[in-house]
Nucleic acid binder design. Structure first.
Lengths: 214, 214
DNA sequence: ACGGGTTTCTAACAGAGATTAGAAACGTGC
DNA sequence: GCACGTTTCTAATCTCTGTTAGAAACCCGT
């Protein structure tokens, strides 16, 4: 029997800790090599186990993927919403957008969260798995749509734009960072700042009024 | 023996035409399903052949991938450079950027070119294959770097930005369109226009001086 | 030290996919 | 109608991966 497997903390059962180790190993492998080239043997080795032992913790490879996908989107949702809400209820909608952009970049580039592995393999999953997680992703998309809508209603956004296209382009710029960002040359925060400037104010010289961060 | 296989046109040998059919089928499959979930049998079926017959035209699956990758980056390079050069030598550097953005989006969203398949599978390839094509991709990156550098030298770009970060964020926004764009709701040109506006001028209301297209 | 539940290992199986060799079919100039 | 080079098919091989069953090792309270 498999244990109930709550989120693993220090006091958790051995099983829960091993399970977490497996998820981490898998996420790390996926982040580096994509979905299909990673084998259960790879994951097990990284986690210090034999391939067959994974089946004590997960019913199948798909089950393992599911765990990572959920954790990843969850991390993004939580991080972004917290960052926005930390500004308080009456905050400037552009400042809220800036906070969301920064939070998204940070979580996507962090190694601990599984958001990066998530993005990396999203496009590679069999349709069956992807559909199982569509709802969660839609929720995240709706969150961003609301951010943009509020900003537009406040008159902060130019009115010649289709907000859903803007949203996809924005998230694209942010998500793609996982493909090229390597620690060292510049920090995730710097990337986030660049992204916010570019998306909100544009790269062309010529003052757009809002430049300071909230 | 395999024939020399030039680019296939109508007058080409039967072999060359079949080869092209295979490449097209493979690119279409990759664009839809990613790299590893596409089997040689799938590709062969789409091309109207048996799996084994592919080996008359390609030495291996990797060889086939290589053909698609080269064609894809080639298409992007050609399309973008042509669009920029069509503006003439003395064109406004921001207009050149706008043209490059539009051309990149168009080629990436076109079904015929293999650029979309290319992007889709880039992150999923075994390292060996990817490294073989790094040089070509670097060349494309250098082209964009030059576009941005010229614009910056002309004083058209705000000076608080790291241009290589801007470049990656920009290409990210454009490349990610392959993940969400579906024909119907709006045209690739509209997406391109939104991307250019967002990247160059920002989405926040408040006049940035350059809005008209070249 | 013992016993029972928990966790991991070992050694297999089944299926799929890339690849190959050789046979068949095709097409074309004579 | 034939011979020969080209193109495709068929059937088999070989390797790899997910998966499973059962044996071993581990852990811990008594």
């Amino acid at each position: 029997m498999r244990s109930v497997a709550p989120i693993a903390d220090r006091s958790a059962s051995k099983s829960a800790r091993t399970r977490q180790r497996i998820v981490d190993a898998a996420a790390a492998a996926f982040r580096r090599h994509g979905y299909a080239s990673v084998t259960l043997k790879d994951i097990a080795t990284r986690a210090g186990l034999q391939a067959g032992s994974l089946y004590y913790h997960f019913d199948s490879k798909e089950d393992l993927i599911d765990a990572i996908l959920s954790a990843g989107v969850d991390a993004a949702i939580t991080a972004t919403r917290d960052a926005v809400e930390a500004l308080g209820p009456g905050a400037d909608p552009v400042a809220r957008l800036r906070a969301a952009i920064a939070a998204h970049v940070r979580v996507v580039l962090s190694e601990e969260s599984h958001a990066s592995a998530n993005l990396r393999i999203l496009g590679q999953l069999p349709d069956a798995i992807r559909e199982r997680h569509l709802k969660q992703q839609r929720a995240y998309g709706a969150f961003w749509a609301a951010l943009l809508r509020d900003a537009a209603r406040a008159g902060a956004i130019r009115d010649d734009l289709d907000l859903s296209v803007v949203r996809m382009l924005t998230l694209g710029a942010l998500n793609w960072t996982t493909e090229w960002y390597r620690a060292g040359r510049c920090s995730p925060s710097e990337v986030a700042a660049h992204a916010a400037t570019m998306i909100l104010d544009g790269i062309v010289r010529g003052a757009s009024p809002r430049r300071r961060r909230g």
